[in-house]
Nucleic acid binder design. Structure first.
Lengths: 155, 155
DNA sequence: AGTCCTGCGCAATGAGCTTGCGAAGCATCC
DNA sequence: GGATGCTTCGCAAGCTCATTGCGCAGGACT
């Protein structure tokens, strides 16, 4: 059932994670195949769902999303109802890029993207803390980041 | 200096964040332009660095990266030396997808991707806690996630 | 050895990218 | 008020690239 990836497949995936818009002929050249079998492999990887989709990655600073904030959230209670309502609520805010419902010290970790610190505090006060499930929020503002979001390790 | 994005540009960016490999003619159709000015706008957005790059998004579960873990890290001391050494050290591990050096309760937040929980604990024991800068690590294992990593909010 | 099967390369067709050019809308300045 | 310059559009031609069908080579199994 799990598709077996040979070295060429992994090579293709590595290249496409770096450049999702490389032409098929260049991709074929890079992995040492002729264009047609290379394209066939890519199609198979797509149909198997191993390649989920292709996206453009924008520069956050240049589209008014220069600040990434981690918010740790504590719920009033920890039942499924409250948790689901929270997950549903954050889905409506485009600022919330990721929501992790955790089993650790806090109940949820949010990665939130806004233009700057001021708009973040406004978002937290106006929207985040007003979600009924939320008891309290603690904020981590990153200073420097390593971003490898788009390249999964292929070993 | 900051490039002004008109509604058509934002429309283009939204579409490309969903589908980075859409053909230019389809993109033009969707935003209500003819192919050539549409392609010209895309090229400008690329040259301005607003579109940073295009990538293929893989399904983590299907490439042996099924588990995402948040690790909060505390340093032994908080001077620049220790911090930089830590940032340098995590860079060598492909499992570390993101590293946020924070100013909040802990000193760093890592997003770590491994195949499963067992490989995570092995990674933490063998590599993470052996970085000289590291005093202690606390782990948040997410149960359910909202993933919007690739679509920045355009308002 | 013969047969099947998988995956390769080649070639032809067609779709899409790319560029140059002329026209239309709009603001500025005599 | 009309002319000029600037911007951005659409059209068309040329050319690259994607896509498909087909034949061939190498390995496995009988």
């Amino acid at each position: 059932m799990p598709i077996i990836l040979d070295p060429i497949d992994r090579h293709i995936l590595r290249v496409l994670q770096r450049d999702g818009r490389i032409s098929n002929v260049d991709l074929a050249k890079e992995v040492g195949l002729s264009p047609s079998p290379c394209l066939r492999r890519v199609r198979l990887l797509e149909e198997a769902g191993i390649i989920d989709r292709y996206v453009a990655v924008l520069d956050p600073a240049k589209v008014g999303a220069g600040l990434t904030v981690f918010a740790r959230v504590w719920f009033k209670t920890q039942d499924a109802e409250v948790t689901l309502r929270f997950a549903e609520a954050v889905r409506r805010f485009p600022e919330v890029m990721e929501c992790y419902l955790t089993t650790g010290e806090c109940d949820a970790v949010l990665r939130i993207v806004t233009a700057d610190l001021h708009s973040y505090w406004r978002f937290q006060a106006d929207h985040l803390t007003r979600i009924p499930s939320v008891l309290s929020v603690k904020t981590d503002v990153p200073m420097e980041t390593l971003k490898r979001s788009f390249e999964l390790p292929l070993r």
